[in-house]
Design a protein around this nucleic acid. Structure first.
Lengths: 79, 79
DNA sequence: GTGTGACTCTTAGTCCGTA
DNA sequence: GTACGGACTAAGAGTCACA
């Protein structure tokens, strides 16, 4: 799984958790609306300052937006 | 403090903690040596895929490279 | 082993639309 | 409110020679 997909999912999840629209998030982070849309569709490799700005608006650590989701485990079969 | 400075410091710290030279890190991450140098001097806002690649070689989470250091008390004598 | 200026090429990021 | 395209500008990605 590509890091930009991870970022895309985390971004969308965090945004929705905050109850913000792409428009509103874009406005608050001073980023273009269509670019937010692109980021959530894994179109670009965002730079760390964009990650930082978005994290600030979303009231979380930049760090959180790059965290890979924990692996779903087949309940009894571990390798 | 700019996020790219945070990244620069964390990168250098993590690299040295691993006992790697810029050259060696560059080689393992398949990145140019001088580009690593630039990143450690806060020249660029690295994109998240570069952060990811470096983190992988350094055997840490991409996340760790973006963590801001805990606030120092105002000593002013620190670099 | 590292810093730096100069350089090219690619991509991030903006702004305009339409659906 | 969101996806997506085209055209554009700013900045990153990547390399080199030289200190």
């Amino acid at each position: 799984m590509d890091i930009r997909e991870v970022f895309a999912r985390n971004l969308r999840a965090a945004r929705q958790a905050k109850g913000l629209s792409q428009e509103e998030l874009a406005h608050r982070a001073d980023i273009d609306r269509t670019y937010i849309s692109s980021l959530e569709r894994s179109v670009y490799n965002a730079s760390i300052d964009v990650v930082e700005r978005l994290a600030t608006v979303l009231d979380i650590e930049a760090c959180e937006l790059l965290k890979r989701p924990p692996k779903e485990m087949p309940t009894e079969l571990d390798d």
